[in-house]
Design a protein around this nucleic acid. Structure first.
Lengths: 340, 340
DNA sequence: CTGAAAGCGCTAACAA
DNA sequence: TTGTTAGCGCTTTCAG
């Protein structure tokens, strides 16, 4: 007898399947005689009964499954977010189905289709672009969603995002306090909310602090990658702009800077200081260890999951978004400029 | 009309649901009149019909889902393996349900229970210990499984593992060819197959090459972690054994060595060379960049998924295991010993 | 080649 | 408090 069914339990306990169902479900257990309930539970236990969520789902149109949409699990940013999500889902008896989109809209569409066909009860989306037709469409279709890390423009979707603006401000203030006046920014892709928000915050903080507000000091990367970071920095360096520090849009971009430093014999932090963003793992093992802004990834993921579960439980609940505070992690890649 | 059902399609096409079912399923399409089949498919298309795998699964007792059991997604070793797995699963219309065990047997048991109750059709397991009662039990229960990266002892379970023995041999030979004679090994946990195999290969290669075969030169780490690597190396250093190179059980253990080097002012590779194992991301950004043994993670994952799918498709198929070749990646952490 | 009918395992009315 | 009945969406005999 492979995997006993509810009926097996019911028979063995001498009750009807419906009664067994009620006894086994904590939510409906109250409807059944306490001693019968006990008996059923004991029988289930000894038979090694495990409810079949598929069958349950077919009836209730619920799957206790949510979809997790990320660009690429291999990017160290996402695993901790995913773990945070799963921690919360698990506690609620839910499972997460993870898909990678590789930042390809076609792939994303197909993957989301597949999730939907698997009857996920909601989506946690980490791939939001500023313009994101798919998300718009999903929202119209009434698919429950929570954005994490990034958010699309103009859509009323709950989102859990780091307080990028304040984070970037901390980075600039840190450099300014070390004595830097000419600071460059390697901005992230302008089609991502994080890229835009950070770049905007860079400019406004530079102005607020009365530092050199030279538009030439901002270069924009097309992707969040080392290669893009490296080529953006090369571009800036070639213009001989005389900056003494750079704020990278994220850690990968900062890593690209390290490559350029090695290739051109630039001393970091002696010649140029660098600050990253995200605090991905092992940054402390770099030479020099990278100063960066730390995001509570797990917490962000966990909160996103909580929000989604809430909105599943109470569909009419008010849309809510959360901004997470960030912290500056000072390591060896930042120092006072030469001669300061 | 949210999500049309098979019945909707059938009605719209003027056929019975059963016929629609046959027409829509490639495997049974032959049973139905070609033009009817075409018509049904067209209707399904225009209605935006998506089959409900839950319902299908209930009937067929299949879920087109497999469980992926890993210790911790946050360990950079696993995301590429998982991606490899999902690439293959996806192509076959399967999904992967990922669980993290945190190397806790109780947690692992609970997680596997949960996977099984979700009717996964098989398990890809990356948490195998040399002794692993749970796996033994699952095998007895007839749960389909494939091991990836590690394998338990004495169980006839298909496994996809890197050729650790040869990999470690390459590491030792590399150091020997640079002129090192006294080489230390920071072995991984002895309850993991990888730890054991690598340590054994270390000893035998050292002997084969006629290097100093001093048992004191091998220290064993309790976990695959930086902290363990650091403390193991400290222990060795404190004994003043005069080694000029160390082969770490994996990259994390090697990273622990970097900490000790910094803390004791040891120059790497000048005073001591180090080789890691795994080639996790960003190792080239360390100072010095870490020489290591590269594992084709994605490929290993992909192959594991292929094996599992095969054994799902043909349950009686012969057990098969695969050993993957590894490559030595020489970077800056290894050099000739001083005075060589 | 196609329709009718039954049922996968479970839950939700409705009765009793 | 418990049993009866029906049905979630689909596949699969079995007839026709």
């Amino acid at each position: 007898m492979q995997t006993p069914t509810l009926r097996d339990v019911a028979e063995a306990a001498g009750v009807h399947a419906a009664t067994a169902s009620r006894a086994l479900n904590p939510a409906t257990r109250g409807l059944v005689n306490a001693v019968t309930a006990q008996r059923v539970m004991k029988v289930a236990e000894t038979l090694g009964y495990r409810p079949n969520p598929i069958a349950r789902g077919l009836k209730t149109a619920k799957s206790t499954t949510v979809g997790i949409v990320i660009p690429d699990l291999t990017n160290p940013l996402f695993p901790p977010i995913v773990r945070g999500i799963e921690r919360v889902l698990e506690a609620a008896g839910f499972s997460g189905l993870i898909v990678n989109t590789d930042n390809d809209p076609g792939r994303e569409r197909a993957q989301v289709e597949s999730l939907l066909s698997r009857q996920v009860e909601g989506l946690i989306v980490a791939t939001a672009l500023v313009e994101h037709p798919l998300l718009e469409q999903l929202q119209r279709q009434g698919v429950r969603m929570v954005m994490v890390n990034r958010r699309p423009d103009g859509l009323e979707i709950p989102s859990i995002v780091p307080d990028d603006a304040t984070g970037l401000e901390m980075a600039v203030r840190h450099l300014a306090s070390l004595g830097h006046r000419r600071i460059a920014h390697l901005a992230g892709p302008p089609n991502t909310s994080t890229g835009v928000v950070r770049a905007r915050s860079f400019r406004s903080t530079v102005r607020d602090l009365g530092l050199d507000d030279d538009p030439a000091l901002v270069a924009t990367c097309r992707y969040w990658s080392e290669a893009e970071g490296a080529s953006a920095l090369r571009g800036l360096l070639d213009q001989d702009l005389g900056f003494t520090a750079v704020v990278a849009g994220n850690d990968l971009i900062a890593l690209g800077c390290y490559d350029v430093f090695a290739e051109r014999g630039i001393d970091c932090p002696g010649d140029v200081s660098v600050v990253g963003f995200n605090d991905m793992p092992f940054l402390d093992k770099l030479r020099p260890p990278l100063t960066t802004i730390a995001i509570p990834h797990q917490e962000i993921g966990a909160e996103a999951a909580r929000l989604l579960l809430e909105s599943i439980a109470e569909p009419d609940r008010q849309v809510r978004s959360v901004l997470f505070p960030l912290t500056l992690v000072v390591r060896g890649s930042t120092a006072a400029p030469r001669g300061a």
